[in-house]
Structures are given as C-alpha cells and as structure tokens.
Amino acid sequence: MNPLLELSDVGIEFPTPKGPFCALQNVNLKIKKGEFISLIGHSGCGKSTVLNIVAGLYQATQGGVVLSGKEVNEPGPERAVVFQNHSLLPWLTAYQNVELAVKRVFKGHKSKAEMREWIEHNLELVHMSHAMHKRPDEISGGMKQRVGIARALSMEPQVLLMDEPFGALDALTRAHLQDSLMEIQKDLNNTVIMITHDVDEAVLLSDRIVMMTNGPSATIGEIMDVELERPRNRIQLADDPQYNKYRQQVLSFLYEKQRKPDTDAPAKKAADSDDSNEEKVDKKTGEVA
C-alpha cells in the first residue's frame, strides 16, 4: 500500500548572520492512512520544524513532502493544524471559530443548514456543545484546546497535525483530552502527526513513535512501533509490562542516547550566577566606599 504522506530526505537551513544554520537534515518518514504518529525529542530538536514543513508553513530547503501524490509547498486546510496555544480568534465564539474554517473549506459544497449541522457535530465530538457560543476568554484552557481540535477536525483534513496540543494544560485536563482524542480517533481514524514531549502521552496515543536526535542538524534517531491493543486504557496500561517496556525504550533514547549536553549544567550555572552576584555586590560596595 502506498503511503499517504511521505517525507523524503527533508532538511532545512535557516539563514543567520553567522551563515546558514542547519536545523534539520535527512528526515525520511512514510506514513500510512489512519496512522497516529508521535514526534518526540528534547526541546529545540526541530520536531516543530518537521511539523511546520508538513503544514507548509516552512519550506524545506532540501528534499520534500508528498501528500497523496502531490508535493506540499504551501499551507492548506487538508493539513489542518492544532496549535499549541489553541490560537482561536479571541473575538469570535467557539462556534464562529469553527464556522470560519467550515465556510472556507465547504463553501459551495455544503448548504447553510448542512454547515451549521457540521459545525455543531464537530463541537459535539469534542464535548463543547454546552459552551458553543462562548468566546475564548470565557472558557478554560482545556476547553479552548478542544475547540481548536474541533476546528481542525471540521476541515476534514487528510492529515491532522498537532503541535504539542496538550503541552500547556495541567495533568488532569491533559488526561481528559487524551481520552477524548482516542475516542474521536476510534471513530474517525484520522491520520495524525502529533508533537509531544510527554513520554506517556506518546506511548498511550501512538501507533508509531518517531524519536528525534538533538539539533543542530537534527534527524530521526529511532522509530518504534507501539503494538498495544486498542482501545487503550491508561489505568490498565500502567501495570502492563509491554507498555512499560515501550516507555522505558523512549526514556532511554531521550535520557541516555540523546542526553542534552547541558542537562547536568544547572547546578554549575547556579554557582556561576552566585559568583557574578557577589561580584556585583563587591563592585557596588567598592563604589560606595
């Protein structure tokens, strides 16, 4: 079966005053329809860059992305993005935010009544029907993210891109949203690429976990298949030896093979800053004297 989405030899360089900075290179990945992929890695390793290239928000300077046989070179609703900070338009209600997307994508294909039904259906999917006509500043962070997901789903994307969708939420809300997402995924079977820095989230949700090496010139380090049966239940999985093996494998990649060179530095840094503080005080007293 042909892959739905194919990244071949993707790399990107950003121009800087000190010459080009290579953020990403040799990223090769084939994604089948209906697959749920997580990208995990330390912050600054370029996982967001990969997502932005697939979204079309960045242009790869090397290689390319092909979605259903067409090369990706600009953003579009068939690759809907759920942004980390919900990015709802603050002057529109939840309904209107979804409406903006639906009108854009289905204009001419759906009648007014069908559009309304479709908007309401998508808000229902993320359990937001009760607060449909509230504006983002009137609902909680978790609810905003739900609306963000509804907006993305309403575009019926071929690939759903999620950029640390639950990163800004507290642990309980995050768990709720992960469960909601699994529930939706069971019905819709979307193709999803999700960025995360949460190992549990990655193992719980994904079919495959793509682990990225540290930048600069970051690339894919390892790819792990997660063969846990669905539906998955976080409580049962907590005791599951297979689940824990997967977890352990990701953790060992992140903290042993790809340990950030400066992760043991904080203690030293603190000491440094103490020194500099002392210096300042000294200077000050010197001036006073």
Binding site: G76, R79, S87, V105
Partner: peptide, 14 residues
C-alpha cells in the same frame, strides 16, 4: 498580530 493567528489564516488559505 500573534504569529499563531497568521498561521491559522495561512492554513485556511484566506
């Protein structure tokens, strides 16, 4: 304007 909102606009191809 927040970059995110500009991105939304781009994804929607406004």
């Amino acid at each position: 304007i927040p970059k995110d909102l500009v991105n939304v606009s781009q994804v929607l191809r406004l």
